[in-house]
Design a protein around this nucleic acid. Structure first.
Lengths: 259, 259
DNA sequence: TAGAATGGCTACCGGCGAGTATGGTCCACG
DNA sequence: CGTGGACCATACTCGCCGGTAGCCATTCTA
């Protein structure tokens, strides 16, 4: 198995070309020339990601993936050592943009809440990408212990990054005081879950969904007395009559006897 | 609600006893007598839920489930027609408390935000239960079309219920104006995701997690100028010095030039 | 043009796991 | 007492799928 695992750390080419002429198979397109191993390998991984995304990991056979590429199974094995590694590579391809977003945000001289926003936007985009499913649902149970450990470490890294931004935000006053751990769980959960319902046919793009979620998380459900969201286009008021931003006295007076 | 002791009857109760002397197998306990079909069937389903929860659906064989009950595979098939139905039953057991929570909330004469809170608490509890995994991760891909349709309908029912409460809350002024669809997605996603990381060994219970999430969603990340959360014990301020609830002018002035 | 890579295919193996055939045992009831 | 039925085990079938062996075709190189 140690034959071709050159880029699990992926030092030089971390992100695959995610643009979606992806359906075309390099084999069919130019069967005679163009033998760039990397390109074909990426095509295999993307095909796997799409298949996993549609049918699930366990319901996808390597014959399926091969067929999607108009190739046979041994050809797939020529580029990838086994099915598990295929899932692992998809995971890496999915999570790498998020790590990149953190690196980018770290060098941003803005209050933490804005840095967090930037990260969450990229996060949403990544989850809605074709590798989103693989990233979100790569289970320890389906992977060998060492790969599972890799994945778990990366997931933890993301989680800690969010918590850190939250803490910083509370420190610099740009974020309402909160429990960083639980808040990070809520944020990551909401975004991760996108992978469960998002389909490419959706009207919204991943970044737009992330934007909408950010708006939800930012202002919160409880009504805000001040004129709040002139910069939140995702929040639309349903009726112009009864929905003045001010809290109606009836609700307000009741609001403290809860439970 | 049936009692948790397997000895006592309660023949056709829709919800299984979720308490965790569940590890004991009714077969071993009283192998000679006691042939109550329902109880044993419930034990099969719970064993399946636990196994799915630990190893995943596809990595769990019916022999595993049988072994956990100290029985053999045909015995399992005696109570359940096939593996798929097993997953389906687990799903039902997981989602039924949530539906009940909606029914209960509907008859509550409170502002919608509080009714939503009540629902979300039960939601979190359900997701953290032993059937949480099955409910959250029952995939269409693993089920026959008709069962998949059933499940999809129930999930949609939940989703619509949340949206409805959100709309009502915006109407009655107890909820900040927002896009119900996206907000419902964010809420459900955050709660569903609990099933991915929650283990019974956790220090917090499901309801407590839900409570913490509610606090996050309620107040939002953006700092609130008013004295905000005297009733949100889950929000703890990290330092007593620099974290005054008021928005620091630096962050505030910058907050509008975002991207 | 020899021959070595490189890339791919046909054809197989082996095992795992869902589901079943069959039959045995214990109880209820007449 | 014997008969039917509920309940459970032994021991199988069988298809699917991950993975491999080995051969063929094409291209690069010397």
């Amino acid at each position: 198995m140690p034959s071709n695992r050159p880029k699990t750390g992926s030092p030089q080419a971390p992100s695959l070309p995610t643009r979606d002429d992806a359906t075309a198979s390099p084999w069919r397109a130019s069967r005679e020339r163009l033998r760039d191993r990397e390109i074909k390998r990426d095509a295999v991984i993307r095909a796997a990601a799409r298949a996993f995304n549609r049918k699930g990991y366990h319901n996808t056979s390597l014959d399926d993936i091969a067929a999607a590429l108009e190739v046979t199974k041994p050809t797939v094995y020529y580029y990838v050592s086994n099915k598990e590694q295929l899932l692992f590579e998809c995971f890496i391809a999915g999570i790498e943009p998020i790590r990149a977003a953190f690196r980018e945000a770290r060098s941003l001289a803005r209050p933490a809440r804005e840095r967090l926003q930037a990260v969450l936007r990229h996060y949403g985009e990544a989850v809605a990408s074709e590798f989103g499913w693989c990233m979100v649902r790569a289970e320890d149970q389906d992977l060998s212990p060492d790969m599972s450990a890799h994945i778990k470490a990366m997931k933890s890294e993301i989680d800690q990054g969010i918590r850190r931004l939250l803490r910083e935000g509370v420190q610099d006053g740009s974020i309402h005081p909160c429990d960083p751990k639980m808040t990070a769980f809520a944020l990551a959960g909401a975004l991760n879950w996108i992978a469960h319902w998002y389909r490419e046919s959706q009207s919204m793009t991943g970044a737009e969904i992330a934007e909408a979620f950010i708006a939800v998380f930012e202002s919160g459900l409880k009504p805000r007395p001040e004129i709040s969201n002139e910069d939140d286009p995702t929040c639309r008021k349903p009726k112009s009559s009864s929905s003045r931003p001010g809290v109606p006295r009836s609700a307000r007076s009741r609001a403290r006897l809860r439970r």
